[in-house]
Write a protein that binds this DNA or RNA. Sequence first.
DNA 1: CTGTGTGAAGGCTTTCACAGCC
DNA 2: GGCTGTGAAAGCCTTCACACAG
Lengths: 208, 208
Amino acid sequence: MPSKTNIPRKSIYRLSVYSRCLNRLLDNHVDTVSSETLAKAAGVKPAQLRKDLTYLGNFGRRGLGYNVAELWQRINTMMGTNRLLPVILVGAGNLGSALISYQGFAKEGFEIVAAFDSEPERRRSRHVAIPVYDMGRLGAFLRSNKVRLAIITVPAEVAQEVANRLVNAGIQGILNFSPQVLQVPAHIMVNNVNLAIELENLAYFIRQ
Amino acid sequence: MPSKTNIPRKSIYRLSVYSRCLNRLLDNHVDTVSSETLAKAAGVKPAQLRKDLTYLGNFGRRGLGYNVAELWQRINTMMGTNRLLPVILVGAGNLGSALISYQGFAKEGFEIVAAFDSEPERRRSRHVAIPVYDMGRLGAFLRSNKVRLAIITVPAEVAQEVANRLVNAGIQGILNFSPQVLQVPAHIMVNNVNLAIELENLAYFIRQ
DNA sequence: CTGTGTGAAGGCTTTCACAGCC
DNA sequence: GGCTGTGAAAGCCTTCACACAG
């Protein structure tokens, strides 16, 4: 599924992190950075950073470091983070509404263009600034709007059914917040964010 | 840092997933399950599931499978998921308020006992059912309440400072939702949930 | 001398494949 | 026959350590 070039999965994740660290350096008008400094900011070892960067080519200057602007440019070009990507969200409950209002997405190149819910008119504690449609309109919406990414924030009981509908409607990547393992065709990419499991994991490792 | 026994990090994550799949089997009064069936439900390969389970001992019955109740019991005992664990949350904005109301935590053994914010009285779009204190009360609260886990949902600019205060106040595990790499002492455990990076990652891999 | 680029080594995880038990 | 438990093999990722360039 990784397709593309052979950049390791984990390197892709870290490149996203490096890009965000570079943003800060750009803000501070720093124009050169060493692997040691950047690695520290990103929470990795210098050798790993250098290895990750070799997937983008060789453009560090020995004895000096990397040009911040150039490095930022190269990472964003290869990640395809230059245009604003549309995303839909299914499940406009607590968590879903919070994500719709979450400024972090807009800042980082994603726009939630529409939300879907089984009760689009239900009273929401928070005003949401985008349209909330009935689930029935999902197919029609995706036929007339080219969107390939979806966020699932529905209860576990209906998550698989929602995933099926998304896949049928042509969605290719799913960010799944429900605590339910989704069964999807091999060409569909799913990233899971399971809040309870993250806490459980922390709890396990801090028991002395 | 993993300390404890030598169960691989990733196995720990998966054991949490297995436990949730077993919940469903228990609900459905299934009392025996094979590695093949459970692995499919958890989205892993059967051999991996069996290897993960050997860290808990040998109690599958060859030719039959695993006893659902016993397996569930063993996983939860070793994960320490039997008691309700208290957690605090710092940053009661959009995302923070949604997490406070998120039913998933309560269901799975965690209780957010208090929240802290630099503006505890600010108008919140959603009613929150737990006390929201001023940041200044963090130290005192943690001195009189034994809490070891914290969730950070503050803006990136202040995340490191909040982390420092949490560490000084004795917090040992941090679930960090801010898009900021936290620098903490080696004995502090941090799990990061970076929503924008998850989407970016999906976007990268679905470009055909 | 400073700091990158990178084979080689090492470590960790996954997968295979089959012996062994029910 | 069915399915677990597990060494051994394979694959993946990280780290080392040093040649090399500025």
